[in-house]
């Protein structure tokens, strides 16, 4: 299973999102320092979930980081995170 698909599953289970984008951006970083060249190193996630309501930014990111702890400790080198509760403007 691809890292993208695995991350998607873990986030679905942990956060029950109403919208979930998991975007592999590894190709944008190929060849520069810090890029392991695996094709599964740099990701961007956008998550809309009721679980984020009344949570601070740091708390929201911790929830995502916890769900993806194995990935962050392993092959995922960089993860850009955008979190929204339902009704918050997506920017």
């Amino acid at each position: 299973m691809s890292a993208e698909r695995r991350m998607r599953e873990k986030l679905m289970i942990a956060l029950n999102p109403t919208r979930l984008d998991v975007i592999n951006e590894s190709h944008l970083h190929a060849g520069h320092a810090g890029s392991p060249g695996t094709g599964e190193s740099h990701f961007k996630v956008l998550i809309v979930s009721q679980a984020f309501a009344s949570k601070s930014r740091v708390e929201r990111h911790r929830m995502v980081n916890t769900a993806l702890a194995d990935e962050l400790a392993g092959a995922v080198h960089a993860l850009a995170i955008s979190t929204f509760a339902p009704g918050e403007p997506l920017n």
């Binding site: 930014r57 740091v58 990111h61 850009a80 995170i81």
Partner: peptide, 8 residues
């Protein structure tokens, strides 16, 4: 106080 990482 911890503020956050790059995205935050």
């Amino acid at each position: 106080e911890f503020i956050g990482g790059c995205d935050i």
